[in-house]
Design a protein around this nucleic acid. Structure first.
Lengths: 338, 338
DNA sequence: CTGAAAGCGCTTACAG
DNA sequence: CTGAAAGCGCTTACAG
């Protein structure tokens, strides 16, 4: 059950290994007739080029890397990463690139993984998520000259392609919508404050609240888990002057917030309106279904993969703006009960 | 910025490349002093062995493959796969094996991916989930002699290591618990009927219902998505003699079922008790939190990875029984309101 | 214990 | 258009 090599094909076709390689890779150097014959033989014997040999001869590893830096308990439940992964694959699969995955515990460990992967030539590039302020990963990517695409920030990663979306615009839309419904006490439960996109959202939230005269904009920081989402929600709801609407930075925390409200005997949306960021099937799973800021996560992933393949090919590197999230109203928002 | 090779180390250490290889791989053939010196140099210059060269010289690819065969919309939300992946990684990372991922649409496409990966020598083995009756993947694994571990069935995959758990026992426990609470009309919303473990569960459910004199056991088949979970639940609840308890084959459908009950004005657990299979953070996220059949999914994944590494090393292959899921009572189950 | 050499399966200049 | 050959960076028998 020895796996066939180009030598086997060459022998059967009566040509050299070089010719087989040219034929298989669509390079000039073989006649059309020979190419056809070679391809037919390859097909017939089920030939797949040994990826190691290919990578070793200077070609690509034909794989890209992704690290997942979240505690296991949140990884499984937050639809975001899987949506992203589906998107990557749609693009990578088409070019028969493989996706190599690694769960890590911190940005520092992530850096180690990048060094190792790149040193091993195991991957041709990486997709970097959760950009932070003064991110330790950026200088390493530059030092290694490792092709990369960074998601979630803009302008902080010199020389590395970035993809970002207008989160400030999206949150502004959400607040305006709630205000139009009649809300004036609007709070927010945010994701990890170190993340650049959290900061962008917080700033925009502050600004729109101020410009609409809503008084101090209250953001309670959390970490995307249900536990912290519940805790933050309780903290907001037990106060005297409790908010009539809460915007959550992810779907998981929004669902947890809904459960807390129900547990406290508050009706949603009667007593409390809820908006979730990053719409996902989870938002439609609960009752009432959650109004959400939607965007095409797997489209975003596909776009990221496309940019990464460009970067690997040494093509242009730059700042790419993705679609802005838009509001999808569902059952969790309504005018506040007066 | 050329990445260092063993030749660089050999030059600096004043030894042959062979000696460097032996030292790095803990093989006999170099003195302890030389080994120390070589390792120090490797460390200093940040050496990582080129994985392609390694794989090409007959060694392992040091990667294993996993395909995900679910529609994108369910992949992101079902915690099961990510839990499994965390578990794999805990084990694979320790041995510095990489995990290669691919989303596929069908078992047939999965087979193609296996053929390609193996042909390319891109992976050393695969983890196979969702075993079916007369699964098309099994004969291919055997034909390719591709090391594999199969999850979710027992006894159907000659020559391939299998990991399974006693799902029949678990569902029996759940039914007995509900009966003890006073329920007699218990229904079930199952996962995809083709899957072997679904069949095991259905059979056990039928048996325990019969043995407890509950009359005909009603199982409505679904596909793990929230949509089908809702549909199945509605079908069960609009009937005249509606069940007082429903057992769901995954957490997502259980949450969807809860939403349907709430939407129909039924109280959970007053009018309807709900049991979810495969406990996950999702079950604790909603209100009331869901009683569930729990097991250590990432432990299961780690066990699978360990068996696969054994299989790759040519070690014993066999049937491994994993932990049986146990009941974790929460707020969604109670005696039926009479 | 150590060195020189072959070989893994490709790709790619370099001659014909 | 085609063939023969070098080389990618390792591992591993095979001599010393």
């Amino acid at each position: 059950m020895k796996r066939p090599t180009i030598a086997d094909i060459a022998r059967r076709a009566g040509v050299s290994k070089g010719a087989v390689s040219y034929a298989l890779n669509g390079q000039p150097g073989v006649s059309e007739a020979t190419r056809k014959r070679i391809l037919a033989i390859a097909q017939e014997i089920g030939f797949n080029a040994n990826s190691a040999a290919r990578a070793l001869s200077g070609a690509r590893a034909r794989a890209v890397g992704l690290t997942l830096c979240r505690p296991a308990r949140i990884l499984g439940i937050e639809p975001w990463f899987m949506g992203l992964i589906s998107g990557f694959e749609a693009e990578l699969g088409a070019q028969s690139y493989a996706l190599t995955l690694q769960v890590v515990a911190s940005p520092e460990q992530e850096v180690e993984v990048y060094r190792r992967w790149w040193g091993e030539r195991r991957i041709d590039g990486v997709i970097v998520t959760d950009l932070r302020e003064n991110d330790v990963r950026i200088p390493v990517l530059q030092q290694l000259q490792l092709p990369a695409v960074v998601l979630g920030g803009s302008g902080e990663a010199g020389g590395v392609t970035q993809i970002w979306s207008d989160d400030g615009g999206a949150i502004t839309e959400a607040v305006r919508y709630l205000v139009a419904l009649g809300h004036s006490r609007i709070a927010r439960v945010s994701g990890v404050p170190d993340l650049l996109h959290t900061q962008v959202r917080t700033k925009a939230f502050d600004q729109v609240c101020a410009s609409l005269g809503l008084g101090e904009a209250l953001t309670v920081p959390a970490d995307y888990t249900g536990e912290e989402g519940s805790r933050a929600t309780r903290r907001l709801l037990i106060g005297g002057d409790r908010p009539t609407a809460i915007i959550y930075d992810n779907d998981v925390m929004a669902v947890a917030g809904l459960a807390v409200a129900q547990e406290m005997g508050l009706s949603v949306p009667g007593d409390l309106s809820i908006v979730a960021w990053d719409d996902s099937p989870l938002c439609s799973l609960v009752h009432p279904s959650l109004t959400a800021l939607s965007r095409d996560v797997s489209g975003y992933g596909a776009q990221a993969a496309r940019e990464l393949l460009n970067a690997i090919d040494g093509k242009k590197v730059g700042n790419v703006k993705a679609q802005t999230a838009h509001l999808t109203p569902r059952g969790s928002t309504a005018p506040p009960r007066s």
